[in-house]
Design a protein around this nucleic acid. Sequence first.
DNA 1: CTGAATATTTACAAAAGCGTAAATTGCTTA
DNA 2: TAAGCAATTTACGCTTTTGTAAATATTCAG
Lengths: 231, 231
Amino acid sequence: MLSFTEENYLKALLKLAWEGDGSEEAGTNDIARELNVKPATANDMLKKLKEKKLVSYKRYGKSSLTAAGRRLGIEIVRKHRLWETFLFEKLGFSWDEVHEVAEQLEHIKSAKLVNKLDQFLGYPAVDPHGDAIPNAKGEINLQQRKTLAEQAVGMRCTVAGVKDNTAAFLQYVDKVGLAINQQLTVTSVQPYDGLIEIEVDGKRSSVSPQFAENIIVQPLVNKAAGGRSKK
Amino acid sequence: MLSFTEENYLKALLKLAWEGDGSEEAGTNDIARELNVKPATANDMLKKLKEKKLVSYKRYGKSSLTAAGRRLGIEIVRKHRLWETFLFEKLGFSWDEVHEVAEQLEHIKSAKLVNKLDQFLGYPAVDPHGDAIPNAKGEINLQQRKTLAEQAVGMRCTVAGVKDNTAAFLQYVDKVGLAINQQLTVTSVQPYDGLIEIEVDGKRSSVSPQFAENIIVQPLVNKAAGGRSKK
DNA sequence: CTGAATATTTACAAAAGCGTAAATTGCTTA
DNA sequence: TAAGCAATTTACGCTTTTGTAAATATTCAG
């Protein structure tokens, strides 16, 4: 049975592999920075995880997850995102509060719990931040997603997620009137500084390109005209 | 912030205080036995918790919770029982499976989570085992409860809870056809050995007095004749 | 290709939690 | 009251996870 700490290392390795430029490998310093520990500490743990055959590690080399380590890491991510979905949808937590609590809940050991929770939530595909939730087999739907920064003027779309999960960013998102599944229209783009003006529920706001790059959107397709509008 | 281990000591102290003959105090050996550790280990922790002013402890004396320790212990119990209720009612866990998972979930630190969960469950008064759930203020409804062993022949009642939480017992309960809120009738009691015959959904079974002492029942009052029967 | 900056590793050390074995205390009983 | 026994405590040691400081390897710039 893995300790919380060991699980966090697997999760960090997975995150670095996904973020990295396709290299899938990470240096000891990067891993240490990700987990807010000293490189010496990370080094010890990497050797320990190598013993457990969860990480491939060589002295003075880069580290990466083995197939077994990857599987376990994905299971943690699955649990994290399912719990986030539960907190947001069932308990009414706000967007920026779910992460911290899910960091604790993701370490609960019970295969039955995870799968029952998944079922209870209706097998969601994405969490409140728009990140894909791995299914029970560990498969992830890695669709490439477009950001608000890439949308042309006049484009209508809905918010599918965010890339930045810091509380500061999420609170700003909230202030602009955006939320998961919220509809918006790009009304103009300043050629000079790239400021993007958007309309949300009739209210207009200007956001920076930097802000827009962290908003994942789903272009609105006028399928079957209308669709039920709840509320 | 308390560690999982420290929290478990508070819970054990509370349990021993409730179980004990009103003494509220517990010896080092009893505490160690309750937590499956050696007395030497428990001794160390008691000294540590005394430093934190959560436990009153004197060399070669008995230990008990301080007001602060009691408050924290009750909070753990509250979380444990709320999670059990969630697992049972929302996720469809069986009676005998909830305890183990709740042992983990009770240590999640988030005041907001506990209260939102309480609200989500409709502020339940008792958990699936029939034990009272402390409210947000730490108050417990300590109604005295009667067991099946105390019921007279002909008595109709519903199962309100159990005293024994072992999987073996709960599975036996299930086998007899009993479950939480299940209705039953005491059809006869053998004068010789005290065997109690009960009728559950038209099926008769005999149970030992020892078994009956671990079933908490609520006498059935014929209020408003009938009531909806949900299959 | 060499020297300096950077990354990585080793060699301690500390705190938490647990165990073993050997005192020590206190209670009971003869 | 004194012995004996159970409960409790002390003294050490082990493992995990973390840190600091110093050594070592690698890499990159000139």
